[in-house]
Simulated scan of single mutants.
Amino acid sequence: MKIKLVLVQLFLGLCFSTFAQQNQAPKSENKANVAEKGLIKVSVLYPYAEGKTFDMDYYEKSHMPYVAGLLGSNLVRYTIEKGISSGIPNSPLPFMAIGSFYVKSLSDYQAAITPNREAIRADFPKYTNISPTILVSEVVK
């Protein structure tokens, strides 16, 4: 009798465990990505060209934190990417670096950047001789 009771308890435990696992959100779903939907992403792209330079250390430790500080609570996060290769073998590197700001509001971003634009541009020669391209987009997924 005790053996049957133990077997029933094990069976019920196994059933409950399987049910709980089936009703969990997929592990591949990244909550950070879900939370970013609807954010504005401002990407600053630094194209590669012969003779152009980029000081990643200064960009990472000084320039990006400076600009991020101007954005205040509108800033959700920022990223820095260092170009390492083209997607096509033996092709030139398309971008030396990309800096991105994820913000809640484009108008608040513009309000923070506009009065500081000249100071931001004045910092460029400290880390690069590249004129960046800026892309503003909305995160959809």
Rank of each mutant, 00 (worst) to 15 (best):
V76F: 12
P125H: 09
I120N: 02
I130F: 07
N23D: 06
I130D: 06
E60P: 01
K61E: 07
Y59F: 13
P115Y: 08
E118T: 09
V140W: 09
P47H: 03
Q24F: 13
K27W: 02
G72T: 05
A68F: 00
L135A: 15
L10N: 13
K31W: 06
G99S: 12
T18P: 00
N23T: 08
L75E: 04
R121A: 10
P94I: 00
E118L: 01
P94K: 09
A97P: 11
S43T: 06
P132W: 07
F54T: 03
E29T: 02
G38L: 14
T53M: 07
T18C: 11
K82F: 07
I40T: 11
C15F: 05
G87R: 01
M1E: 00
L14H: 12
V34R: 15
L7F: 13
A112K: 02
E60N: 15
K4I: 07
G99H: 03
A20C: 11
I88P: 03
K82D: 12
V44G: 04
P65Q: 09
P65W: 01
L75N: 04
S91D: 13
S91L: 04
C15A: 05
S85L: 14
P132M: 00
I80M: 12
K126F: 04
F95N: 14
M56E: 09
G99Q: 02
L71W: 13
K61A: 09
T114A: 15
T133C: 04
V67Q: 03
K61N: 10
A35T: 02
L12V: 10
N30P: 00
L5N: 01
F16V: 14
E138Y: 05
N116Q: 09
Y59P: 01
M1K: 08
S73L: 03
L45E: 13
A68C: 10
S105M: 10
Y66G: 08
A111Y: 08
S137I: 00
R121Y: 02
A68T: 11
M56H: 15
L93V: 10
Y66T: 01
K52D: 09
Y127G: 06
R77T: 10
F95W: 11
E29Y: 11
S100I: 01
Y127V: 02
E81N: 07
N30H: 06
Q21M: 13
L10T: 10
I80L: 11
V67E: 04
D123V: 08
L135I: 15
E118S: 08
L75Y: 00
V34K: 14
L93T: 08
S86C: 05
A32P: 00
L93P: 09
P115R: 10
I134L: 06
T79Q: 12
I40N: 07
S17K: 03
I134Q: 14
R121Q: 08
T128W: 10
S43I: 04
V44H: 07
T53L: 11
Y78W: 06
G51Q: 05
L39Y: 03
I40H: 08
P47W: 07
K2E: 14
F19R: 12
S73V: 03
F11E: 05
E138V: 15
V103R: 01
S91V: 14
Y102P: 01
E29N: 11
K41A: 04
I98M: 15
V140E: 06
R77C: 01
S91Q: 15
Y109C: 01
S62M: 03
N74W: 01
S86Q: 02
E138A: 13
